[in-house]
Design a protein around this nucleic acid. Structure first.
Lengths: 235, 235
DNA sequence: TCACGACACTTGTGATCACGCACTTCTGTC
DNA sequence: GACAGAAGTGCGTGATCACAAGTGTCGTGA
């Protein structure tokens, strides 16, 4: 630890406790991992096309090592798929697997809402309502931002459950269907002009009324409505 | 591909189609990963004590690389925990987190049974019944083999659902509570001499009767019964 | 006797290199 | 002209090395 030579300067630790516990340096591994997740969720990586470690490493400007580990983690989370060639790709969800992921989502996100509806605070609820109205604004209704807002609303609700393991599992499920959402975003937003927002409004009303079960039902209806629209466009 | 010089010997590919699709060489990475999973599930690794990459690599007789990636995958699956030192350990489940994992298990394994009960074949059902009776045998009732049989029964039921993503998620959940199960195995098997087997029998009867919902209820009761026993021993 | 600092050691992280395997492409022969 | 064999290339996997940060220990000074 470097020590200043002039004594009158007090050390930072003396002035402020500053006990932020989770300040750990981000490794290249983590950065590549986060960047890949963002790219996948944004649909920037075409499903089915394999990608090589070397090309990704060159794109990120790092060596093979961080990319290898980040890809391995994503494969472990089933966000990426291991091809027989031992190379990886964003999996192409056929109708069967999409149905499976949707059913898991219904179970898990229903549980999260049932729990989160009880714990969520006034401030978060207001924030979600604001986001939901922003989704209906004409300039964002058909843009990628609408999907981002939709995701943030759901995530905030799920975070309120205070179940970190459950939240992580839901996050990986969203990553699995994320590419599909982005690709068919136009269809979803066209076929359902304001259905999504209405389901959200139902959920907010139920939360305000203290009816966690109704809130869960609204989110389940929301997921199912989006699922049938995507299923319509599949294969 | 090496070619034999003597022509009369027919090549294997000519005699037998042998189109086993999933024959890909196991890498050291996969072997270390599988071995660590076995060790964790068996409770061989004391929860909370951190382990170093180098020591594991020395134990396995491999270099750091395969161990690093295997550990990274297990951390991604939340089977291992990343300590502030950036080293890893089997997480110690407090009561709160154990409750959370149990609630997720109820949702997911209930779904799996509801689906698996409809699809499972006669042969698998007979196998499960045989395993269940073997659990009651005096020589295995209190041994680690009883836990193995219990796990195999549940896994076979969940596999029958034909939902690989769901099955993988359930498997990681079992890995998270596996150490706890093994450590408190004595308590579980003592407090519940044949309760577990009875719940299993209820599930089998419901499956035979074609009542998937009752089968799911039986497994849910099974999980809950084991959970309250473990919760009793926690802290 | 206690505290502080320097040193050695351990550990995770990242880079580089080597090997084996699979696939492609070119070429020679029938 | 077509097909088989060989050379070349690209890829994942694993090992080794280098580096920085953290940690414990030993020694010295007050």
């Amino acid at each position: 630890m470097p020590v200043r030579s002039s004594p009158p300067i007090p050390r930072l630790a003396d002035v402020e406790p500053l006990d932020l516990p989770k300040l750990q340096r981000a490794t290249l591994n983590d950065e590549v991992y986060a960047e890949l997740k963002r790219a996948i969720m944004a649909g920037a990586i075409e499903p089915g096309r394999s990608m090589t470690i070397r090309s990704l490493a060159a794109s990120f400007g790092v060596s093979l090592m961080p990319v290898r580990e980040a890809l391995g983690r994503l494969v472990a989370e089933r966000v990426l798929e291991l091809l027989p060639n031992r190379s990886v790709a964003v999996p192409v969800l056929d109708r069967v697997r999409f149905h499976e992921v949707t059913r898991i989502r219904l179970a898990l996100e229903g549980l999260a809402v049932r729990e989160g509806a009880r714990n969520i605070g006034e401030h978060e609820l207001a924030q979600m309502i604001a986001w939901n109205e922003e989704m209906e604004a004409p300039e964002t209704a058909r843009s990628a931002k609408a999907l981002d807002l939709n995701r943030e609303i759901h995530y905030m609700l799920y975070r309120a459950a205070g179940m970190p393991t459950l939240y992580g599992m839901i996050e990986t499920l969203w990553l699995q269907i994320g590419p599909l959402l982005t690709i068919h975003m136009r269809s979803i937003l066209d076929h359902q002009p304001s259905t999504l927002q209405q389901h959200h409004r139902d959920a907010f009303a139920a939360i305000s009324a203290g009816d966690a079960e109704a809130a869960a039902a609204a989110i389940v209806a929301d997921i199912e409505a989006a699922a049938v629209t995507i299923d319509w466009t599949l294969s």
